[in-house]
Design a binder for these strands. Structure first.
Lengths: 259, 259
DNA sequence: TACAGAATGTGACACACATCACATTTTAGT
DNA sequence: ACTAAAATGTGATGTGTGTCACATTCTGTA
C-alpha cells in the first residue's frame, strides 16, 4: 500500500500548483509523513459555487482521511455526523444478508458524496461503505452540511439532482435484477456499466471482480465466470487489464432480447 | 382501456368555502356529474406551508383528473410536463421487461407525489404508473413545480426528505430482493409491508393480489399462493377482507432467520 | 524472484421453483 | 341476482443455476 500512496500523492501534487486553486479554497492535507498535498475545494462539484464566506466556513471544518482497499468507511446502523465527499478512488455501498452474503450496491467514484440520505433523514446509515481502492475522503460535519443543503441554492439544487438521479438509476437497476435468466442479467449488467470512448469503442472501465459482479446482480461467482468466458469465446467481449472491451455491441444487445 | 379519461378540468373561479378550507386554498372539483367535492390544498403535505401568493398561483394552475382501476396514469418514456399529486386512492409504479413480464415497483397512497424525478432531471419518465383503485390526481405544471422546488424553502426541504427516504426505502427493498430463498423473500415482504395498529396488532393493509406481490419480489404467482397458504395453515397469518393479519409475528421473523 | 493470497476456471450434482394446465372460488359490473 | 372476469388453489414436470470441491492463473509484496 505504500507504493500506491506514492502514485496517488504525485497526482494530487499537480492540483496544488494549479492556477485554478485560489488560496481561499485550497486545503493542505497531511496525507502521510512524506508529502503534503493540496485539495482544491472548487474542484469538488458540490462546493464549486459556494460564496467566499461559505467556502471559508467549509474549509475550516473539513477534515480529510485516507483509507486503503477493503477498509470500511461507513458502518451500517452507525450514527451519521458528517457528509462524506469522495476526493479520489472508488468505493462501494454494500449490505449483508442475515445469512452473511454480501449485497453489492452502488459503485461511486471521485466527485460523489455519501451519507447524504442519513443526514437528510436524520437517521442512522442504512448501508455500509467500503473502499475498492485507495481513497481520500473529506468529512464535512453534519450541521454545516445540512445548513448548506437548505441555505445554499446551488447546493440544494445539486442535492435534488443527485438524489433524483440516484432514484432513477436504482430503478433501472431494479429492472435489471428482475430478469430471471442469469446470463441475460449479466449481459444487461455489462450494458448498464459500459461507456463509449471518443473513438466509439464501447467498454467497461474498472471491471469489478467476478465475485463483486455476482454480489451486485444476485448470482454466484461461478456463473459470472462461465458466462463471461462464453461471451469471450464467441468473440463478443475481450478482457484487457482491468477493463472489458465490448467487441461486438450488437451481438451483445441481441443476446438480451432473443431467447 | 375502460372508461377513458373523464377529464375533470376545474373552473377555478367558483371557489367553494368549507369550514376546514380557508378560501384561499380551496379548489372545487367536479368529480363526476353528480357530486361536487372540494379539495383543500392545505391538506396536501407538499403545499401546506406555501405563502398566500404561492398558493394562489398554484390554485390557478392546478388541474384535477380522475382515473379508474387499472388505468395508466403515466407512460414510461413519456414527456414530463407536470408534477402529479395523489389526492386519493392507491397507485403503483411499474416497469415491463423485454419478455413482457411486469415488474412491480413502489406502491403509493394519498399524499405522495410522482413524476418528481423526471421533473428534476429534466428527463423522460423512467417508469409507468397505473391506478390500483379509483384515484384523484392533481397536475401542477412543471415550470411552477420546479420554481417551488428551488424557491420555496419548505417545498425544497420536503422534496429532499422525500427523495432521501425513497432512496433508503429502495435500498431496503433491494436487500430484500437478494434473498435467494423464495419463501423467505415472501415473508420478508410481509415484514416490509406490515404496520402496527394502536392495539399492537400487526397487519398488512390493502394486501396486493398474489400476482402483484409476485411481480414485486421476482417470483411466480403460484409460489406466493402456496407460501401464504402454508403460513395460514401454520396459524401464523390470517386473511381478512383485503388485509392480512399477522397472528404470530415472532414465528414470522423466526422464519427469516432460521433455515 | 519467489511466494502467499486473490482471482479465475471447471466439472458434477441436486433441488428449488418457474412453468403449464386446469379446478375452484371470489369479485365486480349490468 | 346473474354472469363474466379476476383471483386463488393445486398437481405434475423439467431445468437453470447455486453449491461444493478442486485446479489453475494472476497480482502484489517481501
Amino acid at each position: 500500500m505504500v507504493a500506491k500512496n506514492k502514485k496517488l500523492l504525485v497526482s494530487m501534487d499537480d492540483v496544488m500548483v494549479s492556477p485554478l486553486s485560489p488560496e481561499e479554497s485550497a486545503v493542505p492535507v497531511q496525507a502521510n509523513n512524506k508529502v503534503n498535498l493540496t485539495i482544491n475545494l472548487r474542484s469538488i462539484p458540490l462546493l464549486n459555487q459556494l460564496s467566499t464566506d461559505e467556502m471559508n466556513q467549509v474549509k475550516k471544518e473539513l477534515s480529510i482521511q485516507r483509507y486503503s482497499r477493503r477498509e470500511v468507511i461507513l458502518q451500517k446502523e452507525a450514527r451519521c455526523d458528517s457528509l462524506l465527499l469522495l476526493l479520489s478512488g472508488r468505493i462501494q455501498a454494500i449490505d449483508v444478508t442475515k445469512e452473511g452474503r454480501v449485497i453489492g450496491l452502488s459503485l461511486l467514484s471521485a466527485g460523489s458524496f455519501l451519507g447524504e440520505t442519513a443526514l437528510i433523514n436524520k437517521s442512522l446509515h442504512t448501508t455500509s461503505v467500503v473502499a475498492l481502492s485507495e481513497v481520500l475522503i473529506a468529512f464535512l460535519p453534519s450541521t454545516t452540511a445540512l445548513h448548506l443543503f437548505t441555505h445554499s441554492p446551488s447546493v440544494a439544487c445539486q442535492i435534488q439532482h443527485h438524489l433524483a438521479q440516484k432514484v432513477q438509476r436504482d430503478r433501472t437497476f431494479r429492472a435489471l435484477l428482475s430478469i430471471n435468466n442469469t446470463a441475460k442479467r449479466i449481459v444487461s449488467f455489462l450494458e448498464f456499466m459500459k461507456q463509449k470512448t471518443p473513438e466509439k469503442q464501447e467498454l467497461v472501465e474498472n471491471l469489478p471482480t467476478h465475485q463483486e459482479i455476482a454480489n451486485m446482480i444476485n448470482t454466484s461467482r461461478e456463473t459470472v465466470t462461465r458466462t463471461l468466458l462464453t461471451l469471450a469465446h464467441q468473440g463478443i467481449i475481450r478482457k484487457d487489464a482491468n477493463r472489458l472491451i465490448i467487441i461486438n455491441p450488437e451481438a451483445l444487445s441481441r443476446l438480451i432480447k432473443n431467447p
